[in-house]
Computed example of a mutant assay.
Amino acid sequence: MARNELRPVIKLRSTARTGYTYVTRKNRRNHPDRLELRKYDPVARRHVTFREER
């Protein structure tokens, strides 16, 4: 497998609908489902859930 196929770059979009995103990489072999992380949204000024966008 090529590097980009195993660990693709993904966008994590805020569920607070502020339009704020984080960019990260994930391992498809260990986490084949969509990623959900609780991170800080500076626009909303609070921690919210960020979901993977494809």
Rank of each mutant, 00 (worst) to 15 (best):
R17W: 01
T18I: 07
T49I: 04
T21Y: 08
I10E: 10
Y20N: 11
T15Q: 14
V9N: 08
R34E: 06
Y20R: 04
H47F: 14
N4L: 06
I10H: 08
V23A: 06
R7P: 07
L12G: 01
L35N: 06
N30P: 00
M1H: 05
L37H: 11
R51H: 04
L37K: 15
S14W: 06
T49S: 04
A16Q: 01
R34N: 13
T49G: 02
V48G: 07
T21I: 14
R29S: 12
E53T: 13
Y40E: 06
R3Y: 11
A2E: 10
K39W: 06
L37C: 10
G19K: 06
M1L: 05
T49P: 00
V43Y: 09
V48M: 09
E53K: 09
E53Y: 09
H31V: 03
Y22T: 07
R28H: 07
R29V: 15
H47M: 11
A2K: 13
K39S: 08
R34H: 11
L6K: 10
L12N: 02
V23H: 06
V43S: 03
P42T: 07
K39Q: 13
T18M: 07
V43Q: 11
T24K: 02
D33E: 13
P32W: 04
L12Q: 00
N4P: 01
E36N: 10
E36A: 11
V23N: 05
H31F: 09
P32S: 01
R28W: 03
E36F: 09
R25K: 15
P42Q: 08
R54D: 14
M1Q: 05
A44P: 03
P32N: 00
K11T: 09
H31R: 08
R54F: 13
K11C: 08
R29L: 15
P42W: 13
T15I: 04
F50D: 12
K26V: 05
R46M: 10
R25G: 04
N27Q: 10
A44D: 10
I10M: 08
Y22M: 03
T21Q: 14
P32H: 01
L35I: 15
P32E: 01
T18L: 07
I10D: 05
L12M: 03
N30T: 15
F50Y: 12
R46Y: 03
P42C: 08
Y22R: 04
R38C: 03
S14L: 07
K11F: 12
T21W: 04
Y40P: 07
T49E: 00
Y22C: 00
P42A: 04
H31L: 04
H31G: 01
T24E: 05
R45H: 13
T18V: 02
T15S: 14
L6N: 02
Y20D: 05
P32M: 00
T21P: 04
L35F: 08
R7A: 13
N4H: 09
R13T: 11
Y40H: 12
M1S: 06
R13H: 07
M1I: 02
T21H: 12
E5M: 00
L35M: 14
M1F: 03
P32R: 00
R17P: 03
A44M: 07
K39E: 13
